[in-house]
Amino acid sequence: MDLSLRHITHRYDEVEVLRDINLDIEQGQIVCIIGPSGCGKSTLLRMIGGLERPASGEVLQLGEPPADCLNPLTYIFQDFALLPWRTVEGNISLVLENHPLDAAAREEIIADVLARTKLSDFRKAYPRQLSGGMKQRVAIARALSVRPAVLLMDEPLSALDSQTRELLMDDLVDLWEKENYTAAYVTHNLAEAVRLGHKIVVLSRRPGEIRDIVEIDMPLSARTTENAELEAIQKRLWNLMRDEARAADMELLDE
C-alpha cells in the first residue's frame, strides 16, 4: 500500500501552516520529514494518519493494506502515549481488544511483539518502572502488534538521551532490515534522517513548503557512522536548512 499526499494546505485561523505539499510514500520506503521547529511537521503527520483534516488537498491510500493488517496507519509518538495504569502487556492488549481476536490469538501476538522488541521480561511492569528507552520500545511493540502497513513516527527519539537514541536507532534499522516496513519519520535531527531515510523531505519554515527532496540509495545496513557520502548529504541538508532554521528561531510564537 502506498500513500500519496496531494496539494495539502492547512491553516490554523489566520496562520498558514502548510502550503501545497505533494509527496508519495511508497511501500517499503522510509520517508524522513525534516524542517525547523514550528514548520508543521507534526501537523502534516497527523494528516497522513487521519487525526486531522487538511484545509484543502487530500491524502490518498493507493492499493489495499495486507489482509492481516489490523490498523493500517499506526503512530509512534514522541511522548510514548502509554497508559500509566496498564502494564506493558496491558498497553499492547489495549489496541487488540477492539478486534475480533480470541484470547489465544491475542496472547500469541503479544508474546511475539514483546520478543521482537526484547521486552519479554517486562510484561508485568508498569510504565513508571521503565526507562524512557524502554517505554518507547513498548510503544514500538504496541505499534507492531496491529501489523501496520505504514508506521507514522513523530520524533520518536527526541525525548531520549543520546545513548538510548543510538540503541533505538539501531533497533529501527534492524527491524527495517527484517521487515521492510513503510514509514513516515518526522525529525529535526539530520543525522537520524540520513541514517534512516530512503527519501528525505526538507520543509521550509512556516508556512511549510517542500524545499527539496533528497533520495539516498545506499542500503541502510551500509550506513555506518563516519561515512563520507552520508556526511556530504548531511552537510547539504544543513545548508538547505540553516537560514530557515535561523529565521524560524527569531520568529515570535504568536503574531
Binding site: 487525526l51 489490523l70 497508559l83 489495549l94 477492539n98 496491529v146
Partner: peptide
Amino acid sequence: GLIRMGQSFGL
C-alpha cells in the same frame, strides 16, 4: 495525547 493515541489505533 492518550485520547489521540486511542483514536489513532481505531478504538
